[in-house]
């Protein structure tokens, strides 16, 4: 169990951040508007030098940075990739970010990285494995991590534990914090046919140190039921904003990220989306 008393204090402000895209570099320096912090994908900043690291060095002088890993495969059946863990440590040591987060998912198996956040069943066995991997990660990078809930398109017949309870037990065993992706809750609830508000009610909101919001696409499954895809390619849907309002009303204000990773819009569009979140956040008493 990671000793959170020795952990770095969460330095993300209770404001709104955006996922950083290089095309927005100049706008961020001159006209950040509602955007108070930035999130980067760790794996995009593991080169030796050049523009990515130069931009990041510049931005880190102006904004708190959240490092979001998308490739460690914490939910993998095999051992964590020691080389990748060392690269994460190097990045975190250099950048000293406000927070580090990763996903309840797997992406690497038998040496192949599949570049997607793949699902795992929720059982006592997977709970133990994920907790062991998080212990190893937190020891490896020398700080607490936040664990993010996935968007789900299907379920495992072998699962025996509800996702909020699974996350609660992982956090209790490892001392990790949580990153609550409200869009993922809405997507999973719609796809798997449950009430997203029941999920939020069951979720340990006191452990949430960051919230994600993003856009999803709408499709249908083989039986004509709605199948939402977590695409991060458009604005946040109205029912997700409503679920966000309920979440921060219950949890209090939390640092909130707008994720827009495909069909990336121009800066005024992205900043306006951040301002929408900021206006909602400001209405919530601290």
């Amino acid at each position: 169990m990671f000793d959170t008393n020795q952990a770095k204090t969460n330095a993300l402000p209770d404001g709104v951040g955006v996922g950083y895209k290089p095309q927005h570099f100049a706008d961020l320096i001159h006209n950040a508007g509602a955007v108070k912090w930035l999130e980067i994908h760790a794996e995009n900043y593991m080169g030796e030098g050049g523009r990515p690291l130069a931009q990041l060095r510049h931005l880190a002088e102006r904004f708190p940075i959240s490092v979001h890993g998308v490739g460690l495969s914490i939910g993998g059946e095999g051992p964590l990739d020691a080389d990748h863990l060392a690269r994460l440590r190097r990045l975190v040591d250099w950048l000293d970010p406000a927070v580090f987060s990763e996903h309840l998912a797997w992406s690497t198996h038998d040496g192949a990285f599949l570049n997607d956040l793949l699902p795992l069943p929720y059982t006592q066995a997977t709970l133990t494995r994920v907790a062991d991997h998080i212990d190893q990660l937190q020891e490896g990078i020398g700080r607490q991590m936040l664990l993010e809930n996935p968007s789900s398109y299907l379920t495992f017949e072998e699962s025996t534990i509800e996702e909020p309870e699974f996350l609660r037990q992982i956090a209790a065993r490892t001392g990790c914090g949580l990153l609550l992706d409200v869009n993922n809750v809405f997507v999973s609830a719609t796809n798997l046919g449950y009430d997203p508000r029941r999920y939020i009610d069951a979720y340990p909101l006191d452990l949430v140190q960051e919230i994600h919001l993003g856009g999803h696409d709408e499709d249908e499954d083989d039986h004509g039921r709605p199948l939402l895809i977590d695409s991060h390619g458009r604005d946040v849907a109205d029912p997700v904003w409503a679920l966000y309002d309920d979440t921060i009303a219950a949890a209090g204000p939390r640092p909130t990220l707008i994720e827009w990773d495909t069909d990336v819009p121009d800066w005024p569009t992205l900043e306006a989306e951040a301002a929408r979140a900021a206006a909602r956040l400001e209405k919530v008493p601290a």
Partner: peptide, 9 residues
């Protein structure tokens, strides 16, 4: 030849 590491670059 799927990627051998998570660094897509």
């Amino acid at each position: 030849s799927p990627p051998a590491s998570p660094i897509l670059s």
